[in-house]
Design a protein around this nucleic acid. Structure first.
Length: 415
DNA sequence: TCTGGGGTCCTAGGACCC
DNA sequence: TCTGGGGTCCTAGGACCC
């Protein structure tokens, strides 16, 4: 059996952990740059505040309902997430951390009383971390996702739903729209509706082989999973990333080359850190810049750059990112976003040596290791070109304190 | 004025080879 | 007039996820 443990309105719940005065009140969290709403507490959902809508369009509505609004505070969410994942790891045989706020647990033998197990898990995490979760259990991942959805939406379930045999759930599946299925997004939903498949039940009852021909292999697997045949296994030890992207929209439009230089330098630095963290090297990077996609004539350019040898040295990656920037920069564009992508990542062990080309030296590696160590200890070491802020910096006007990751932000208990 | 970021997988089509 | 077939690899774009 697969069990999906999924935090409820995760970012909004995190903001409430150190703000008990906001319990039971509408809370929303914004994306980077305070762009869109990405999380809503149940009270905010009940006010019909839409998900993924731009903040500026909803401002008056939010003010009218006295909704507490927060910028994203990833340091806080990541820390709370890792504490929850540690608890889940203790509670299960095997676990796949699927995203910041959810994990699949797997049991080879059925737990004797799954509903009770789910309730206990939920109670433990609430008691230790003060984050509410929902639990869905079923013979496949897709069904566990569905069970979790039912656990979240049906008050009868009290946050836990177990699907043992699909045939017992036909009536419920007939009432659930097909887009609630994991893996069926907007485009597929539209195509499915054209052939009169509207509910989860409709999809479940189709012929997987025929559906593969008409749609694709993903849809086929989903149908099989809905019928209780596992097609997706547990991914306990995810492979290292194949690519690393670091990009941001700017706090406001920028036109100066110097601002873009700083931003690209900061992104290249961050990307190189991520690369070293997974012990990778790259030879190829891509830099892209763009104006807003809402512009009448959007400008978007990218440039692929090859480094002379496999590297994870911030200085080299940054240097080649700047060279790439040279090719995509156009005077007069109001830039809204830029980014650095590291592609073709290879492990730093066992790299093909080239007799005639320079390699990354041991000294370079030691310098990078030293920088990374300094960073984990909170020492502000960096390169002169890379400034932490500028006119390109992200907007986060409503960020909560870093309660768990910054000494100066740790809450003080008053006697 | 203001519209997120970071991933993966699949497919179709082109280039190239024999 | 008539111009193969099958395989691999790469890339771009689409779709999906949270």
């Amino acid at each position: 059996m697969y069990i999906l443990a999924d935090c409820n309105s995760f970012y909004a719940s995190c903001e409430q952990v150190f703000r008990p005065d906001l319990r039971g009140k509408p809370v929303v969290v914004l994306s980077n740059n305070d762009g869109c709403i990405v999380a809503r507490s149940p009270e905010a959902k009940r006010l019909n505040i839409p998900d993924l809508e731009p903040y500026f369009k909803l401002r008056t509505l939010l003010e009218r309902h006295k909704v507490a609004v927060f910028s994203s505070n990833y340091a806080l969410y990541a820390e709370l997430s890792s504490r929850i994942m540690d608890m889940l790891r203790e509670a299960a045989e095997r676990i796949e951390v699927y995203s910041i706020d959810e994990a699949f647990l797997y049991f080879s033998d059925t737990v004797s009383n799954l509903p009770a197990y789910g309730q206990q898990l939920k109670a433990d995490i609430w008691q230790q971390i003060r984050i509410p979760i929902s639990v869905g259990a079923a013979p496949t991942k897709t069904l566990a996702k569905l069970a979790n959805h039912i656990a979240k939406t049906s008050t009868k379930c009290r946050g836990v739903c177990v699907i043992y045999a699909v045939q017992d759930w036909h009536a419920v599946f007939k009432k659930m729209p097909v887009n609630t299925v994991w893996g069926i997004g907007r485009a597929q939903t539209k195509k499915l509706q054209q052939v009169h498949i509207h509910s989860v039940y409709d999809l479940m009852k189709t012929n997987p082989k025929q559906m593969r021909r008409r749609f694709n292999v993903c849809v086929e697997r989903t149908i099989r999973e809905l019928n209780g045949m596992p097609c997706f296994g547990l991914d306990e030890h995810p492979e290292p990333r194949k690519q690393i992207i670091c990009s941001r929209s700017f706090g406001r439009r920028i036109t100066k080359r110097s601002s873009l230089t700083q931003a690209v330098s900061a992104y290249a630095t961050r990307a190189a850190e991520k690369l070293r963290a997974q012990k990778g090297l790259i030879k190829t990077l891509v830099v892209f810049v763009e104006s807003s996609r809402f512009d009448a004539n959007p400008y978007r350019r990218s440039y692929v750059m090859h480094c002379p040898y496999p590297t994870n040295d911030t200085r080299v990656i940054s240097e080649y990112a700047q060279r790439a920037l040279h090719y995509v920069f156009l005077e007069g564009v109001h830039y809204a976003k830029a980014g650095v992508m590291l592609v073709d990542i290879m492990p730093d062990k066992g790299v093909q040596q080239d007799l005639f080309v320079q390699q990354q030296s041991l000294r370079d590696e030691q310098l990078m290791t030293m920088l990374d160590t300094a960073k984990t200890r909170g020492l502000p070491l960096g390169f002169a070109r890379q400034l932490p802020v500028g006119d390109w910096a992200m907007r986060r006007d409503l960020k909560s304190p870093d309660y768990l990751t910054r000494w100066s932000d740790i809450p003080v208990v008053k006697a």
